[in-house]
């Protein structure tokens, strides 16, 4: 199946009956340094939805933010399907009682490392234990829960899975970020299109920090030609995606400054710690710019130097490769249009 180069939405279309987002996954993990356990993690891949369905919890473990030297991640994953009888009825060829397996597909695109761990489906729950070696992985690791056929059907039926290990149910993936993710368009931040007020009708974006927990980037939908460009998730390198990356690099620099300002000027109540969001912002900025977080905080204090803050902005532009991404846009323009004279 080939997707159009300018597709703005990627949706899986299954050739047979499958239950999507039906596999709940409970992930317990421990980061191990060889001689000692370093950090624990526990998340589920789902949240209850308003219509009794499941909602993607976007479960992520930012291991890279912990800034520790580790050798192994030891993981236990527990699977649950709420209605196992209903699942079997929906996805198995009628009259054929084919055994099922839970399968967790582990994938690391940066090293191409991949494997699957499986356990019997039983009565709709199961668990697997495994470990991930630091030596094998880089970037992100995706943990995708599935239910698959444990055997091929005796008779293939149109519209039903027809071979051993065919996927018949999926769940929301969980991600382990073992290295800092590259700065991608809108990465790590909620992006929402909204009609801006008349007095700011020509502004492109605005930033919201909600309850010191969540960041939202609002984009102005009064200029409809922008949305297909900025919403594009395509990885194909063309004029639209180059423009998208360039626009987001400009926005990202400004966003980081605003977030750093908010984090630096946040004063926790006595006895309380800095909110998690602000702690993450300062840690990430400190890593990216190789600056001490206290120095970052000083830049936004009441006695701070405007010129030093401007230098920080320049460093951010460099980190985000703003010039290179802008040049890519220029180079993509046909020469007779871009040449000028």
């Amino acid at each position: 199946m080939n997707w159009k180069r300018d597709s703005s939405e990627l949706r899986a279309i299954w050739p047979y009956s499958i239950k999507e987002n039906a596999v709940k996954l409970d992930v317990e993990a421990r980061l191990d340094g060889g001689t000692a356990s370093l950090e624990d993690f526990h998340r589920m891949n789902w949240s209850p939805g308003t219509d009794a369905g499941l909602v993607d919890a976007k479960a992520v473990w930012d291991i890279y933010l912990l800034d520790v030297s580790w050798t192994e991640v030891i993981v236990r994953c527990s699977f649950v399907v709420d209605d196992p009888a209903g699942l079997k009825n929906d996805v198995l060829p009628h009259g054929q009682d084919i055994p099922l397996l839970f399968s967790l597909l582990l994938r690391c695109d940066s090293t191409r490392w991949r494997r699957a761990v499986t356990c019997p489906f039983g009565s709709g729950s199961g668990s697997v234990d495994f470990s991930l070696s630091r030596a094998d992985i880089a970037g992100d690791v995706e943990l995708q829960p599935l239910v698959v056929l444990a055997a091929s059907p005796t008779t293939a039926i149109a519209g039903q899975a027809s071979r051993k290990v065919a996927k018949v149910a999926t769940g929301f993936p969980v991600y382990l970020h073992v290295d800092e993710p590259p700065e991608g368009p809108g990465r790590g931040i909620e992006v929402k299109w909204q009609r801006f007020e008349d007095n700011i009708a020509n502004a492109l974006y605005s930033l919201e920090i909600i309850d010191e927990q969540k960041v939202r980037l609002l984009l102005n939908n009064r200029h409809p030609a922008l949305q297909p460009v900025m919403d594009s998730r395509s990885k194909v390198r063309n004029e639209k995606t180059l423009l998208r990356d360039s626009l987001f690099s400009f926005i990202a620099g400004d966003v980081w400054l605003h977030l750093a300002d908010a984090a630096a000027n946040s004063v926790p109540e006595e006895g309380e710690e800095l909110p998690d969001l602000y702690d993450k912002i300062l840690r990430a900025l400190s890593r990216r710019l190789e600056m001490d977080r206290e120095d970052i905080k000083l830049l936004f204090g009441s006695d701070s130097d405007t010129l030093e803050r401007a230098k920080l902005h320049t460093q951010l532009q460099n980190y985000l490769s703003v010039a290179e991404k802008t040049e890519d846009v220029v180079l993509a323009i046909p020469a007779k249009v871009a040449g000028g004279d």
């Binding site: 299954w14 050739p15 699957a116 499986t118 698959v148 899975a161 290990v165 065919a166």
Partner: peptide, 16 residues
Amino acid sequence: NAMLVTTALDALQPVE
């Protein structure tokens, strides 16, 4: 590649 979309080939043994 097409098969990998719908089939968890990684769950099979090498001989399979």
